[in-house]
Design a binder for these strands. Structure first.
Lengths: 207, 207
DNA sequence: GTCTATAGGCTGATAGAC
DNA sequence: GTCTATCAGCCTATAGAC
């Protein structure tokens, strides 16, 4: 039910991720969704409306997930693991979200209304809080939590967002890009690397 | 001399980084450069031309820098340090490059011609090679070099590229974002974190 | 090299029939 | 809810004067 609405949202997310807000036309969204051009205005009030809808629902969902993880009150290292796994789930459900979020950040949040911004801020503050707690409880080395948190988010978002480039490189056959490059391996490797780099006590190997 | 040409390139890079190729108009480029609209076509053959010129010169420069570092033949850990410092120099000279590169990667290299692609591939393969050598020589743990290399590039590019968002958040005053968030601190923290995570022998602390 | 004027194409939105 | 037809605005590129 409401399948036109859903198809439009899905097609729009894919296009916004690959080409950005300005690079995507309403006509393309409708065509890919198998719907009529005018339906974008009817259901979402226009191109800006469907974009904001995607941002808002995804950020709200993500913020809720992160909060739920924090509420479990696990040690920082485990919380980090829960977070990276939650990130994997999010990407599996909404594969186009990382690119949209990166584009938004690079544009200074030009399309982020007051409906979206609090969720965005919420996610960032909470993830940072995980690292801060790890340091406060002596589980992590005293790295700078903000810088470390940004490094983590950058790595996490980068991989799914740049999938189109790897696809291009393999398709062209110009570059030997390995086969097994799935998000799970990537996040697993990153998590192990990060834990190894953060551990206050380097005695326990994380690999 | 040739100041119009230079002004146009500079203005275009800033706008392409912040708004992407499609979000930038030739008119804006000219206005910001204090030049005439028609000069973009005259000097670069059009909007696509000036964009490609920016991509090509920057990638060629970056590829050369990375190659020079590899030619020194230092141990992997030190080579990584040389690389991150070279990255800092690049960002200081061309602050808009990370965002342009990220956008390009997310678009599947839509604007990457055969003039640009080899340099792009060259940089990636060489950076990956640093990690591979560290593993081969026993200096690094046997992590996956491709996954680790992507994590590093993601972190490095993310910070300078998302500067507009941090600027927005501080300007709005809605979020407490620290002051000292400069690229040098960021890259320094990242490098230390990565080395600590990669070290085959965890005895030597990297903090 | 630089500028003005304009052509020509594309885009987002909507009025109105069904 | 869906579709067609259409309009007004914006954008890139260029011809031609200087």
């Amino acid at each position: 039910m409401d399948s036109t609405r859903y198809s439009l949202l899905s097609a729009a997310a894919e296009l916004f991720a690959a080409r950005g807000f300005d690079g995507t036309t309403v006509d393309e969204i409708a065509r890919r969704a198998g719907a009529n051009k005018a339906m974008v205005s009817y259901h979402f009030g226009g191109k800006a409306g469907i974009y904001e809808e995607i941002l808002a629902t995804t950020f709200a969902h993500a913020a809720g997930e992160v909060q739920a993880i924090l509420d479990e009150g696990l040690p920082a290292g485990e919380t980090l693991g829960r977070f990276t796994r939650a990130f994997l789930r999010l990407v599996a459900e909404r594969p186009h979200f990382p690119a949209i979020m990166l584009r938004e950040a690079m544009s200074g949040g030009r399309h982020m209304t007051d409906r979206v911004l609090p969720h965005f801020v919420g996610v960032f503050l909470r993830v940072r809080g995980i690292i801060e707690r790890g340091i406060a409880e002596g589980e992590f080395r005293p790295v700078d939590p903000v810088l470390t948190h940004l490094a983590l988010m950058g790595s996490l978002l980068f991989f799914p967002a740049t999938e189109p480039m790897r696809e291009r490189l393999t398709r062209d056959g110009k570059i030997p890009i390995p086969e097994f490059l799935d998000a799970e391996s990537y996040v697993g490797n990153l998590h192990a690397l990060l834990l190894a780099g953060l551990r206050a006590n380097p005695a326990s190997p994380a690999a």
